[in-house]
């Protein structure tokens, strides 16, 4: 790990100023991904701005939404009474991620900013356009078992590893950011980017911007929800594919539906067409199967991840079945 300057502001403005001044600076919150990457030489910031003492940890109910501070920790959020009551899907997704220890460290803002787990990104001796633009994509013709089936480019086929973000994109959350040019709100689906020609950019955050909170609008998705995570071992593993499913039922009729997938794209993958295919239909396996078929339109596999073309729709069906039965 390189030497770096370390500062620990206690005021939001000081933190933003510090970052805005220095292109080689990084915020550090939980550190569970950044320190990992710094140890391996993948990231080498010259300055770390420790934002853990900023007052951004509150979870509060406001008019029509739940506002979760960016520095609220994943574990406590997953067990927060308000979150469990209003947004159980988010709680489930958070609990499916990492380990209890990591959830006690990782923040909500940091979770969104997790970088891909693509092995080529992690090894500085291998090509990776995300780590080193122009060096090539090692995964494209390499070991691409974990990689994208949607939204990839010839520059990058990595996937976003967050579970929490899959629930948040499904729930139409909004990311609140504060920067040198003031505050702005980013719809969750616009927060993460597809790789295109600039895979080095994971999100649409601008230089100097700080995530301050995420807002999750209140909705009808308090009962029939399920986060289905398919992984290689029973716990403490990144998803092969995951599905966040939320249904609002009137009897057996689907009034409203939300669906998103993880482990399939460079960003959490919202499935709006599949949602449309669900609304107004009976909550049956047949309906779920049709929605899954819609969801998979446009999916394309590489040498080692063709299984996702079957696993993903199956996981959607399973998630919807479980959500409907909840």
């Amino acid at each position: 790990m390189n030497q770096f300057q370390y500062v620990r502001p206690t005021k939001q403005k000081a933190a933003i100023d510090a970052l805005a001044r220095d292109a080689n600076a990084q915020f550090i919150a939980g550190g569970t991904n950044l320190i990992d990457l710094m140890k391996r030489g993948v990231m080498a910031p010259q300055k770390l701005i420790d934002i853990n003492r900023l007052p951004l940890t509150k979870i509060e109910s406001q008019n029509g939404s739940l506002r979760i501070g960016a520095l609220a920790l994943n574990g406590p959020v997953a067990e927060d009474k308000l979150v469990l009551e209003r947004q159980p899907l988010l709680a489930q997704a958070l609990s499916a991620g990492a380990s209890p220890q990591l959830r006690n460290m990782a923040t909500v803002g940091g979770n969104m900013l997790q970088r891909t787990r693509c092995p080529y990104f992690y090894d500085t001796a291998l090509p990776c356009n995300k780590r080193e633009p122009g060096s090539g994509c090692g995964a494209l013709e390499g070991f691409n078992r974990m990689h994208a089936i949607f939204g990839f480019s010839d520059k990058c086929i990595a996937v976003h590893p967050s579970d929490m973000s899959v629930a948040l994109v499904a729930l139409d959350a909004t990311v609140l950011v504060s920067g040198p040019k003031g505050d702005r709100r980013i719809p969750f689906n616009d927060f993460h980017r597809l790789p295109g020609d600039t895979p080095q950019r994971d999100t649409n955050l601008e230089q100097g911007e700080l995530i301050t909170a995420v807002e999750v609008p209140d909705g009808p998705f308090t009962k029939h929800v399920h986060y289905q995570k398919v992984r290689e071992r029973a716990s403490y593993a990144f998803a092969l594919v995951s599905v966040a499913a939320a249904l609002s039922l009137d009897g057996n009729t689907i009034k409203d539906a939300r669906l998103a997938m993880g482990g399939v794209a460079h960003k959490p993958w919202r499935l709006t067409d599949a949602e449309k295919a669900l609304i107004g239909k009976p909550a049956t396996e047949e309906t779920f199967r049709q929605a899954a078929t819609v969801a998979m339109q446009g999916a394309k596999a590489f040498e080692h991840n063709a299984y996702k073309l079957k696993m993903a729709p199956n996981a959607i069906i399973q998630a919807l079945k479980t959500a409907a039965a909840a």
Partner: peptide
């Protein structure tokens, strides 16, 4: 917590 992924100064 995992003490390997936090800086002592934090």
């Amino acid at each position: 917590i995992n003490s390997c992924l936090t800086l002592a100064v934090m």
